[in-house]
Design a binder for these strands. Structure first.
Lengths: 346, 346
DNA sequence: GTGAAAGCGCTAACAA
DNA sequence: TTGTTAGCGCTTTCAC
């Protein structure tokens, strides 16, 4: 196994085909600039030897590897599925292959991964990066970079219209008779978390909703599970969770504690991930156009790579949409601890 | 942004530090083989210039990139989460970074991805590969390769003890009074699908169970949803699905058609993925040690990379375990179409 | 259209 | 311990 009988090079092919190495190189890198006769001989020889161009060697010279990188904050977070597929699709259309790296929610790991990935790709998309603006800009100086789900001044970005999304969630809650909403916060290093919280604070009063907050949770199902206790203590009638994973975990934790969703507490998530439709109850959530995120990010990256002219606005904002499912319901008439029924306000 | 003011090289550092380029190279690749004085000057100069070694250029020479690749048949399939984390963990311990590529269930895409990934990594783990044995062996000739969830003669492999898993699932069904089980097949190109089916055929009779089969489905939730119709037509009392995703989709499709799980049909999946515990009903499944799969695969790969001596058996088999949740129940006493009650057999 | 030759940034002998 | 000198496999002038 892998006894390293070194793979054939253009020299081997050249010898067998009876041409110069540079002709072999051309035959592969710019067909058309080589005679039909030579091309045929080269390809025959290459086929016989099982020759494949070595993209790495090529890239030391040309910088082209045919790959772009995508670093996600956590590959196991379904929020990235759509993004990944979007990038893959757009990349494939342009003849590129996507290489993925997982930051595992760690800035440290993200940096290492980036360092290792960067030299082998023509550009990179940073999805939900946990790095500092400064770090991102440093990377953007070395290679084309597009940032997803975040705004970093001086770098091309693709984000969602958080304000509109939060607005429609709040309108929904207001229409259901709720008078307050509690934000279940995500990781402090998340830019999206900050933006969601800010939008909630800004918009809450406008919809007549009091805004509360429960501090940082790990944005996973178990994070939500763990947060259930604190939520029960504060006993809000509606919770807006940083993301769907957290919301799903929360609903489970609440359910295990005998607190019914949505009868006692309405829960809304963010992202509309895989699973949001088959959890119990199916989750009402602020959907982001995940796939479009991915493809738009790649398209922008591709323009950067080819040094094409760019839109004047470095930030591309995509629309969001509230998906109403079964985790939200009219405000309960009794408190969980047995308070008196209260009619809705005038 | 990225105006390509070419990054500094060892030559730039060497000039600034007043040493030879090779000294700079050594200072980074094998510190210790360089004088303290020189080392200090080199590092100072490097810091000033913002120099970073170029792993690609390095690898053309040494073959070392500090990365290993993992190709998964579908990154959005939660079955790979554990595997990914397992590889990441073991790789990080050994100082390696993991680069991921997604085959999107396509042999064609898998080949392209492999081609692009291979030159940049020191070795690669193929998880649930859809390629032919021949193709896998060809790759294994170029680079260290470990195959996961499959056996390819001539290549190092890590697999699960499918027979034991299927056996415990069948024992469970038998104990619940079932007399037959239908296999909901996965993709034909999946080696695991073949093995699961074969184990079922071999073992079914031994547990007194008649074995049926419903032909290939795409191994996703929607694939399971689509298969629900055919399952209803055949109306078995128990279904063993190729994987959890299919099982979850099936349960949903069945539920939407008014067929209750597990009262009317028991459903068992494979893998114990993320979501198997919070779907409705929670899924009984044959769990594989996903994380161990990943770490063992990396460990084996690492031995291959370092050309260490290997275990005599090229195949490492990890144990499986039946996780009983709520999707299985005693065999129904009435047929779905209203047949007469029948008592359990003597 | 094709070949010769000079790199790309780095590592690895080989001397010194 | 250091510097010198070949490469690694490919691309890219630049002549022919």
């Amino acid at each position: 196994m892998s006894d390293a009988p070194r793979p054939p090079t253009i020299y081997d092919v050249a010898r067998l085909a009876g041409v110069a190495p540079s002709t072999v190189s051309r035959a592969f890198s710019r067909p058309g600039r080589v005679g039909a006769e030579s091309a045929a001989r080269v390809h025959a020889a290459a086929a016989e030897l099982g020759y494949r161009v070595n993209p790495l060697a090529r890239s030391t010279q040309s910088g082209r590897t045919g790959t772009v990188g995508l670093i996600v904050s956590d590959v196991t977070n379904p929020v990235h599925f759509g993004v990944i597929r979007g990038v893959e699709e757009a990349a494939a259309d342009a003849g590129y292959t996507l290489l993925l790296a997982d930051a595992q929610e760690s800035e440290q790991i993200e940096r290492t991964a980036l360092e290792r990935l960067l030299p082998g790709v023509e550009g990179v998309v940073l999805a939900s990066s946990r790095s500092s603006d400064r770090a991102v800009r440093t990377v953007a100086k070395q290679r084309p970079v597009v940032v997803l789900n975040r705004i970093v001044p001086g770098v091309r970005c693709v984000t969602a219209d958080t304000e509109a999304g939060v607005g429609s969630a709040l309108a929904h809650l207001r229409d259901l008779g709720h008078r307050a909403v509690t934000y279940l916060a995500g990781p402090p290093a998340s830019w999206a978390d900050g933006r969601r919280w800010r939008a909630l604070m800004d918009l809450g009063p406008r919809f007549g909703l009091k805004v509360g907050r429960i501090g940082s949770s790990v944005p996973t199902v178990s994070g939500g599970l763990a947060a259930a206790e604190e939520v029960r203590r504060q006993d809000p009638t509606a919770v807006l969770a940083y993301n769907d994973l957290l919301a799903i975990g929360l609903m489970r934790g609440l359910g295990e504690a005998g607190c019914r969703v949505p009868e006692q507490i309405s829960v809304i998530g963010f992202d509309n991930i895989f699973g949001a439709d088959f959890c119990t109850p199916p989750l009402t959530t602020v959907a982001a156009p995940l796939r479009a995120f991915g493809s738009e990010a790649f398209l922008e990256l591709h323009r950067l790579i080819r040094r094409e002219s760019l839109r004047p606005d470095p930030v591309l904002t995509l629309p969001t949409q509230l998906i109403v499912r079964a985790s939200t319901a009219p405000r309960r008439q009794h408190t969980a601890t047995g308070g008196r029924p209260r009619g809705p306000e005038a």
